[in-house]
Design a protein around this nucleic acid. Structure first.
Length: 562
RNA sequence: GGCCCGUUGGUCAAGCGGUUAAGACACUAGCCUCUCACGCUGGGAACAUGGGUUCGAUUCCCGUACGGGUCACCA
């Protein structure tokens, strides 16, 4: 067959040569060790935790090596595309400190535009480039047109839609039928092609696979290690009937032309590497290094692991915004899952930003982990406890503006007051860790605001109401804002003593029957009166923030309610 | 069903032929303490399974079981 002629029939408009493209997209001028990585999502809507996870790997690897990290939008499936998804993705990633050096970006009008010399970075705009290589493959007899329609294929029972296949179960017969159909598709003449073209029939371009699945190719994955994969013998589709490439073809052309050195993607791509190896070989491209990441899983109702999916809490990055997790907290959690020595590093470097951590491919896990929101909570508490009150205030206010506007108004009405509250127990070697997310904050500090203050905890009946009343009245009468914490507490001890409550806890524990209670109980009366709760941060500090008037008012109100 | 990958406490995981099998989260006992949070000291809890190889296997090989992935003109 005259492949040259065939190629011209199929791609009459292509005049560019592969050599010209090589020149247009030259080798990057970078040191040998620099890694060029990319994130290549399809804009199908929400941003998945797994996407951020992969992004962190690519970003770290590129930037730690002095390389380039770029964004490519894989919008080759128009059916699944959601408007605004790319913008949302870029914004979300930015929240998590992920910045691209190059690639698709958002301009001031909110449009996706190119930034860099290796574009276009949207695959939908690269059709002409793919066609250059498609034509080359046809010329070399490595790819061929297939005019078989979807319906015909299904009639052959060769290519079933996934749902149908599942319904009737896989069988060896189905595999054999598929193989037979493939052999049939390979049989055609130039005349067939000319006739189909003349009739205006659409075709897909298929690769002419020369692999033998009985033979294995050694393949080194950066995470999985040495693998053996059977050669590809499937004439998979390169160009769809609309002339847009499939993932496989686009991956080979784009990552070659964009000079990607390390392809980072989910392990669901592992079964496809045989196809990619074949494509790079056919095209004469150097195979990049591959790093297939394990997936983040979730337990389903049967107790089996399942990929964390859309409906699961924590899958969608917007969940973290809504719940009020600080981006740094999510990032650090991801790092604990990504690199097994991150926690150790964190312990030894508690005041450094997580970006100082040296990411190491060898410390990545081979198998998928279960998403653990409890662990996230712990990481988050630690992260928040190390922030300054100002930082927490800013983050909290941002969250509240979106999810609790009333709270936001109160926080911004008196920023100094809010910051004073958020400063309680902050700093020092043993900072308080009261909350891990911003949606927990209001319940914790609400009592500082009169509108939110209510008495929720009840003082047990075992305490004499007259004692409580007396203690509170004495407390209100002797409160002096000039006292330091010692003097202040001495006064409480005095009150306790007057009422027959022990002032020394050891003594009280030794002989509880000798007292009506202890100074801890007296403190509790005061605490409930002022905060409405049995549990709260250090009372002296709380009173200092609430101030004399409101403290006394609350104490008196509570006393008179008894 | 074919092919590929995986399997150390409830979870995340160190380990890379000889260890009392780290650590973190969670749980739990206690200490500290005006309560809580923090912190500290303890505790229970693991190498899926059967064969090899070896003086010796959690570590190496094979099988089995279980789990995951994949088999589209989706990525």
């Amino acid at each position: 067959m005259d492949y040259k002629h065939l190629a011209n029939l199929l791609f009459p408009d292509v005049t560019t040569t592969p050599e010209e493209l090589e020149e247009r997209y030259p080798q990057r001028d970078l040191p040998e060790s620099a890694k060029v990585t990319r994130f290549a999502p399809s804009p199908t809507g929400y941003v998945h935790l797994g996407g951020v996870y992969q992004t962190m790997v690519g970003e770290r690897l590129a930037h730690q090596s002095g390389g380039v990290f770029f964004l490519r939008i894989e919008d080759t499936d128009a059916k699944r595309e959601i408007p605004g998804a790319a913008q949302n993705l870029i914004n979300t990633l930015e929240r998590y400190g992920i910045k691209f050096d190059e690639g698709a970006t958002v301009d001031e009008n909110g449009n996706i535009v190119d930034n860099g010399a290796y574009g276009p970075y949207k695959q939908s705009e690269r059709a002409a480039i793919y066609h250059v290589y498609a034509k080359k493959l046809v010329e070399e007899g490595k790819a061929y047109p297939c005019f078989t329609t979807d319906e015909e294929l299904q009639a052959l029972e060769a290519v079933d839609k996934k749902a149908e296949v599942k319904a009737k179960e896989w069988s060896d017969d189905a595999n054999a039928e598929q193989k037979a159909a493939q052999m049939k598709m390979r049989q055609f003449t130039i005349e067939d092609v000319e006739r189909n073209l003349a009739e205006g029939n659409k075709f897909v371009l298929r690769i002419l696979a020369d692999g033998d699945p009985e033979k294995k190719t050694p393949f080194g994955d950066l995470v999985k290690g040495k693998l053996e994969i059977p050669e590809n013998d499937e004439d998979f589709v390169l160009l769809k009937s609309d002339g847009i490439p499939t993932y496989h073809f686009a991956h080979a052309v784009d990552d070659h032309l964009m000079r990607t050195t390390h392809v980072i993607r989910g392990e669901e791509w592992l079964p496809s590497v045989a196809k990619h190896i074949m494509l790079f070989r056919y095209l004469g491209f150097k195979l990049p290094k591959y790093l297939h990441t394990a997936q983040i899983m979730q337990l389903d109702e049967n107790g089996n692991k399942k990929k964390l999916s859309k409906r699961d809490l924590g899958a969608n990055m917007s969940d973290y915004s809504r719940l009020g997790y600080a981006p740094a907290a999510v990032a650090e959690y991801l790092l604990t899952v990504l690199n097994s020595n991150f926690e150790e590093w964190r312990l030894a470097n508690s005041d450094k930003p997580y970006t100082d951590f040296k990411f190491n491919i060898n410390k990545m896990s081979v198998s998928g982990c279960l998403f653990d929101i409890v662990k996230l909570g712990d990481v988050s508490k630690n992260v928040l406890s190390k922030m300054s009150a100002d930082e927490v205030y800013t983050l909290l206010l941002d969250w509240a503006k979106e999810y609790d506007t009333d709270f936001a108004e109160k926080l911004s009405a008196d920023a100094d007051y809010a910051k004073a509250i958020l400063s309680i127990g902050r700093g020092g070697k043993k900072p308080r860790k009261d909350f891990g997310r911003f949606d927990e904050v209001k319940a914790f500090i609400g009592f500082f605001y009169d509108d939110y203050f209510t008495v929720t905890d009840e003082i047990p009946d075992s305490y004499d109401r007259a004692d409580i009343k007396a203690a509170l009245e004495k407390f209100a009468a002797t409160l002096d804002m000039n006292d330091d914490s010692n003097a202040w507490f001495e006064k409480i001890k005095a009150i306790a003593s007057e009422l027959g409550y022990a002032t020394d806890m050891k003594q009280y524990k030794a002989t509880p029957e000798a007292f009506r209670g202890s100074v801890a109980d007296v403190s509790m009366f005061i605490r409930v009166a002022i905060t409405g709760r049995m549990n709260a941060p250090d009372l002296f500090t709380v009173i200092g923030i609430i101030g004399y008037d409101r403290t006394v008012e609350r104490v008196k109100n509570f006393a008179s309610s008894l």
